[in-house]
Simulated scan of single mutants.
Amino acid sequence: MRTVGAIAAAVLLGTVLTGPAAAAETPPPPETLCTVTDPRVDELSGLVSDGEQWYGINDGGERVEVFVLGRDCAVRKVLTEGTDPYDVEDLARAPDGTLWLSDTGDNRADRRTVALLALSPQGKVALHRLTYPDGPHDAEALLLDRSGTPYLITKDVLGDSKVYRPAGPLASPGPTPLEKVGSLKFETTGTPGGPVGSFGSALVTGAASTVDGTVVALRTYTDAYLYAAPDGDVVAALRRPPVRIPLPGEKQGEALAFEPDGTLLSGGEGVGQPIRAVRGAAALATRDAATTPAGATGGPGAEADGAGLPVLPTAGIVLVVALGGWFGVSKLRRRRR
């Protein structure tokens, strides 16, 4: 999170945006599948599914650590490796079973490089350092397209998120330069939840894609946005109007995943928090795209560059300054450096 001063300044400089696109039909409410009670999984920040079990990571950490969860949310196994990351935030899974950890958190915006850590099924880790073309960013969302290209989506104040991908083949250890391929505009919504009130509904905290890459999703603390990608093109998908699926009541919702059948999974930080499911979510996105006229816009779709910011009411500004400052400090205390 940014400092209190930066948040307040950004709020006052905002401009009004259009609201999120409506789904063709009302999505079903999330249903609780199980509750994470293992104290080792206390900051669930990334989640993926292979159809039989789930893989989750904590926010931060001092080594590569992936928790293999049963469908009862119990930890079955822990995959570990000695590489010491800085601030892991999200998780993605390639078709070959490689787990990609997004070591891209940067609350103080002072990292010269960020990194992706590729954990192979054999337990080996490949480090890929990355550099932004325009200075540091805090990013908590990672997408892999069907070809394995990674996309990072930043967590910027007031919903002005940017989308980056490597400008060339990933080097190990790198760094490989990133290129900006678009920006996304998010508004606050009325969905309750998150650690910073309504402001949290404009902060991107996670991402996911279906096994075949035909639907990609981004989430904030309170809502998921699903984009149809019929040809697997992530940039083109993010320019389409999304389907918004509310995820109300999550204390600090950061994890998002798809089951192979298109069920959307969500979860968040804190022991005792649930893993929840929205069945048929991916089908809603593809169905909505099929009925949307060509060229239609609306909702947080990607643009070539530039982004306006939503204006929050005065009460919202006070809430952002108070809670945003507390949340940023609490996050910084958890970091080793």
Rank of each mutant, 00 (worst) to 15 (best):
G213P: 11
V216M: 05
S209L: 00
G328C: 03
L218G: 11
G82N: 12
L44I: 14
A141Q: 07
K180A: 14
D156P: 02
T286P: 04
V278M: 03
V114K: 03
P241H: 10
T176W: 02
A141C: 03
V125W: 04
E81P: 03
S266V: 01
R63H: 12
S147M: 01
V66E: 03
N58A: 05
T263L: 02
R334T: 04
F327A: 11
W54C: 01
D38N: 14
A237Q: 02
Y164F: 15
L332S: 09
R244A: 13
R146F: 00
V318Q: 02
V216K: 05
A290W: 02
F186W: 14
F258E: 02
R240A: 14
D145R: 12
T220S: 15
L170V: 14
V11I: 05
V204C: 04
G190H: 11
G70S: 13
D233W: 13
T286R: 15
H128G: 08
V11G: 07
A92C: 04
G316A: 04
A74G: 10
D72Y: 05
T205N: 05
P246M: 06
E52N: 10
G182K: 13
E43I: 07
A289N: 09
A141M: 02
G82S: 14
N58K: 08
P313K: 10
F258H: 07
I57C: 01
G270C: 12
L238E: 02
R76Q: 15
G19W: 03
R239D: 00
L44Q: 13
P85R: 10
G325K: 12
T191W: 02
V48A: 06
L69V: 10
G123H: 08
G298L: 03
A322F: 10
L319P: 00
T80K: 11
G308S: 12
P133A: 07
A21W: 02
D38H: 09
A217I: 06
R165L: 09
V4Q: 09
R336M: 02
F199P: 08
V125L: 05
A24Q: 10
S209V: 13
G213I: 05
R2Y: 13
D160A: 15
R240Q: 14
P150E: 01
S147L: 07
G46M: 04
A277F: 09
G306S: 09
A22F: 00
G60Y: 06
C34P: 09
L319G: 13
G159R: 12
L79D: 05
